[in-house]
């Protein structure tokens, strides 16, 4: 803990391994998503997009330092490429923009607040960035605005609930196992517990 904002090696490796796990899950999700898109079109697919922002938010919520959301998402994207994804190119660009979106929301709060609404906003920014990217990359400008609008709505919803709320739930249950005690989230939790105990003793 030499400097408060620079990442140390322990945090990097832990972040990388969380992101690697998510990267593998993303791959399965892409496969599922492509089938869903093939059958229901982009709106049904939009509801699934939030899942792809999870690595960002889980890591940022645990480590709470600038840059974590972006880097985590890039690592997850990198994993998908290393494992062998058919969508390597788009995954790489999407990973960057999704991470950037999620990062931006956290930066707006100066990396000080990690409460649920902020995380949900971060998820929505992430999916919004995702939307803008695929809008150009896959030529969605050729569709009627009704369908792109519905798709955007579905994606934002998914970003808020799946990415924001879902990631917080995962990170919180991880912290209950005690493995995060050396990280910011674990320390915050311990602080809260101690304050609560002090209160109940009074």
């Amino acid at each position: 803990m030499k400097s408060p904002t620079k990442l140390n090696l322990r945090e990097i490796v832990v972040m990388a391994s969380i992101s690697v796990v998510f990267g593998v899950l993303y791959l399965g999700w892409i496969f599922l998503g492509q089938i869903v898109q093939g059958v229901t079109g982009p709106v049904g697919h939009g509801l699934m997009t939030g899942f792809w922002i999870m690595a960002s938010i889980v890591c940022a919520y645990i480590i709470r330092k600038p840059g974590v959301a972006l880097i985590a998402e890039m690592i997850a994207a990198g994993t998908e490429i290393l494992v062998g994804s058919v969508s390597a190119g788009s995954v790489l660009i999407l990973g960057f923009t999704q991470g950037l979106g999620a990062e931006l929301a956290l930066a707006l709060f100066l990396y000080r607040s990690y409460r649920l609404p902020v995380l949900m906003l971060s998820g929505m920014f992430g999916t919004l960035a995702n939307f803008i990217t695929i809008y150009f990359m896959y030529g969605y400008s050729q569709y009627s605005s009704v369908i792109t609008g519905a798709m955007l709505g579905a994606m934002l919803l998914s970003g808020a609930f799946l990415a924001g709320w879902g990631s917080k739930a995962i990170a919180d249950s991880l912290s209950r196992t005690g493995v995060l005690d050396n990280f910011t989230l674990g320390k915050v939790r311990r602080q809260q517990r101690m304050e609560k105990n002090a209160l109940s003793q009074d």
């Binding site: 322990r10 490796v13 832990v14 990388a16 391994s17 969380i18 690697v20 796990v21 995962i170 991880l174 196992t177 493995v179 995060l180 050396n182």
Partner: peptide
């Protein structure tokens, strides 16, 4: 799975 991943990574 993730808990053990974090432990290993540390």
């Amino acid at each position: 799975l993730m808990a053990s991943a974090i432990r290993k990574a540390e």
